[in-house]
Design a protein around this nucleic acid. Sequence first.
DNA 1: ACCAAAAACTAAAGCGCTTTGGAAGAAAGG
DNA 2: CCTTTCTTCCAAAGCGCTTTAGTTTTTGGT
Lengths: 343, 343
Amino acid sequence: MNLKQLAEKLGLSQTTVSRALNDYPEVNEETRARIKKAAIENFYRPNTRAKSLATGLSMTIGHLIPVSTKHEIVNPIFADFIAGAGETYARHGYDMMLSLVEDGNEERAYRELKAKGSVDGIIVHSPKMGDPRIALLTEIGLPFVVHGRASHVTEDYSWLDVNNKRAFSRATEFLFSLNHRRIALINGLENLDFAHRRKSGYISAHDGAGVPVDPEMMFSGEMTEVQGYLSTRQALDHVNPPTAFLAASMISGIGVRRAVQERGLVVGKDVSIVIFDDELSYLKNGHDIPIFTATRSSVHFAGQRSAEMLLQIIKEPASGPLRELLEVDLVVGQSSGPAPARE
Amino acid sequence: MNLKQLAEKLGLSQTTVSRALNDYPEVNEETRARIKKAAIENFYRPNTRAKSLATGLSMTIGHLIPVSTKHEIVNPIFADFIAGAGETYARHGYDMMLSLVEDGNEERAYRELKAKGSVDGIIVHSPKMGDPRIALLTEIGLPFVVHGRASHVTEDYSWLDVNNKRAFSRATEFLFSLNHRRIALINGLENLDFAHRRKSGYISAHDGAGVPVDPEMMFSGEMTEVQGYLSTRQALDHVNPPTAFLAASMISGIGVRRAVQERGLVVGKDVSIVIFDDELSYLKNGHDIPIFTATRSSVHFAGQRSAEMLLQIIKEPASGPLRELLEVDLVVGQSSGPAPARE
DNA sequence: ACCAAAAACTAAAGCGCTTTGGAAGAAAGG
DNA sequence: CCTTTCTTCCAAAGCGCTTTAGTTTTTGGT
């Protein structure tokens, strides 16, 4: 059933029916009630395409997920982020469009999205340092919110980020307070901005404590279980192995733990592990006492908030660049303890 | 730049330009070349909304992800499935729309999708036993492919599934062959069809081997790490604890391992663990020797194939219900070994 | 009872595309 | 040389909605 048919059935013009359903004032309340009733009875739903063609609004938010042809990996963190964002969109009548876009094709993909008019706004994922997408989106005038930030970018833009630097400096300091002096960092890919910030937090804590940073204790890579495992093995093989590990996610932390246990070392005693916990729904950090000591920030919440911010910017572009920095909790779990006494 | 402007610029009618770009024959090859060149130079992209309004095709595939208001959990398996499907859509010029739909609202959500004309087809996720969505989608005439199957459904429909029953009977038999006689099943939610089939595979292997099934060794729940952990603890607390665990996913397997190790038991020696490995990109089952002995089937591939099937059905509805049953590999890893001798 | 203003409705244009039904000109056939 | 058939192009309708610019009906003030 489309508008025309509904209008005919009611013996009214399309104009009136459309106005009644969209709560315009210039329609008699009695008629409006009659129209709304008929709309419900006939399960009338305006055709989205027609509506958006007429209004110029697509009522759709795009999520462009960078996919590397080499690694071809989809971050599990997306699942929870998207769940959070999706809720918000649904509540506001927006749809969510997902596109996987390959490394080199990013500029084209974004321009296309604008030209095709398929979205009203975009969430930018996994910003890299000096990410060119920010200038690009500003140029083409597509509203966007970055999940994360991009260092070395001069534009003013909207973002929501976790205080990654602080998170990692706090975690490092916490380990220092337990007398650890040799801490391995199992980081994400360091061309990604968040990983860069985490590293700088790790380094600044070392500087603050006067502990030298050893580049051989810093690992970076895709945040997979296997990467956590392999990096940890390498770290433990060092002539001067670490007594503690700082892992970028629950998943790499699990890899760290596997490698540690494989060596017959006891987590929380021989070796401490601190992770960054995104509160992934399928990988919660335990049910009572946290499995891992962790800096914690819900990526589900981040998704929700980012979406809200984006919708706000779309509604009122003048409300200007919005920024939000989330602080993390430091929760102490079973995976950390005082550094073992040196023999 | 829209069609009208492009046509004016070229001194041609919209008709000719449109036809040239869509490779219709009734246009001079020289003119076509000229038009295509201009289109590229001006980065012309037809407005999707207008196009789909005119053609009646939305060129969009919908993924409705069931979200429970109670658990509010997004399965990480979706991430990889969607990555696979997304690739395929991109290659064929389709967009992907994601909606989170709450438990009770499913029927309405599907009908709305049809009425609003937002998608040309749908992938049905997480089918339950006797899932009503299949009858519903058949009734409203929206092309769909089910990822999984639904027992007790009489309709003919398209699906792509893993042979879950066989996977779990093989895994169980494998453990029997290692002399395990008491095997705990850490299953997914058993109202979900795949979990039901896995259970029946587990049971049929017991029947085949003449080993009685103990309901107290069968656990079911959301496939999280914590659920795996808690179920395992409960199983190990039993007066007659199991010597082996069969876990529904990598993630629950990790929970099983945690509980086992917490008791000071050695995986692969005191206790064997076999998992179902979906080949999640972030949780690969090790890099050389598999961490866990597993039945393996790539959910990324499943996403790809499901998408291909759906596009095929959309293109040629007559090509009828398509079905595809994927068999799993049984890969032996480090987590299984002969049952410990009874004292 | 009359006129202006407000209320309630409608016809038609327009969003940007595809597609139908021609039309004009060139090539082919007799 | 005239008719027929291609070839190549175009004007205009239509997809289903919103919205502008009116038109008709009611209301209210005098």
